Amino acid sequence: MRVLERCAGIDDPERFRFTVVDAIRSTFGIRDVTFFAGASYDAAFADPNPVLTGAAAPLLDEYQARWRDKDVFATDRARRILQRDGYLEVADLQALPAPQHSYVVDYLVPNGMTVASAIHLRTRSGDALVGMFDSRRQFDRDDVVAVRFLATQLRAHASAVSFDTGDQLRVLLSPRQLDVAKLVARGLSNAEIAREMTLTEQSVKKYVSRIFTATGCPNRAALTARVLTESPRGG
């Protein structure tokens, strides 16, 4: 497959992004292809420097400000399918929650992205999502088989590529949440953070839970590692 041939041996992250996007566009005749990467699945949606083509390109600011949290591929069900199978079409998701239904009806459709699908990649530094959007081009059975095969093979290539995710905590977290995350990284307990920030311990528990959800970190140790890794970039 031409996509795999073009991506073989590429370990430079930016070159890999652009090569994947261009190869998928030219091979499958898809109008709009996007590439988002992050330190976790959730963090990928906050990628500050994604690759976007076609109608999606001028919509980044609107997407990040209004639609990122409502993205149809950000639901738990979509995540499970993509992480398991590597490929998913929006048409396969039934009974979308209200925010995701609005994302489709009020964002994708008006911008000519009525046919939407995604490939999930596990990279050396986290996760990446390749979005494919068009107004008319729909995959037939042979196309779906080819894209599923592509997703499996691209995962092998992507596993060697490390993307710079250093600024994403500032994108994913509010200033208050970032302060809590830094105190967690210093080894403080919830009670100690509560005293430090003049909060109730219950409020701190809620902050920490939301931070775990936003960053994709499963526990305090993972969050600490993430904060310490990114701190030199932003203080």
Rank of each mutant, 00 (worst) to 15 (best):
A95L: 09
N49T: 11
P13T: 12
F133N: 00
F212C: 06
S125D: 11
L129G: 03
A185Y: 01
I24Y: 00
G126R: 01
P50F: 13
S135I: 00
A39I: 04
A160H: 11
S40V: 03
A55K: 12
Y207C: 07
K70T: 10
V161H: 04
V3D: 01
A194K: 01
R17T: 08
Q83L: 15
A185S: 08
Q153D: 15
R68K: 10
D179T: 04
T200K: 11
P58H: 06
S26M: 13
G112K: 02
Q94M: 10
A8K: 06
G131R: 01
D143G: 10
H120Q: 09
S231T: 14
L82T: 03
I10C: 06
R170M: 07
L178R: 03
C217R: 00
T34P: 00
V227W: 00
A56Y: 08
T123K: 05
A191T: 12
P175E: 13
T75E: 15
R220H: 07
V227M: 06
D179Y: 01
M113S: 09
K70F: 10
L121H: 07
S203E: 13
A160C: 08
R210G: 11
D164V: 10
R176K: 14
S174W: 01
D69A: 14
S203N: 14
G187C: 08
D142A: 15
V171E: 07
R84K: 15
R186Q: 14
P218R: 03
R176F: 14
R124I: 11
R155P: 03
R176G: 13
L88T: 12
V105Q: 05
R17L: 11
I193T: 01
R6A: 05
Y63E: 01
R195M: 13
K182Q: 10
V204G: 00
Q83V: 14
L59C: 06
S102V: 06
V130N: 01
L150W: 03
A37F: 05
L96C: 11
R233A: 04
Q177P: 02
P50H: 13
E14I: 06
T114D: 06
T229F: 06
F18P: 03
R155Y: 08
A191W: 00
V105A: 09
W67M: 05
G187M: 07
L223Y: 02
D69E: 15
S162C: 14
A222W: 01
Y63P: 03
A158W: 02
V115Y: 01
R77W: 13
R195G: 13
D47T: 08
V33F: 08
A118H: 08
Q168N: 10
R195I: 11
D61A: 15
D42N: 08
Y207R: 02
R80E: 15
V109C: 09
P13Q: 10
Q153A: 15
Q177H: 05
E89M: 06
A191H: 04
Y207F: 14
S174D: 04
F45C: 07
A65V: 10
T114N: 07
S174L: 06
Q202G: 13
G216R: 02
G54M: 05
T114L: 03
D142G: 14
V115M: 02
L108M: 10
F139I: 05
E5L: 13
E89Q: 09
D142I: 15
L228R: 08
A222F: 01
D61G: 12
F73R: 05
A151M: 09
F163S: 04
I81R: 03
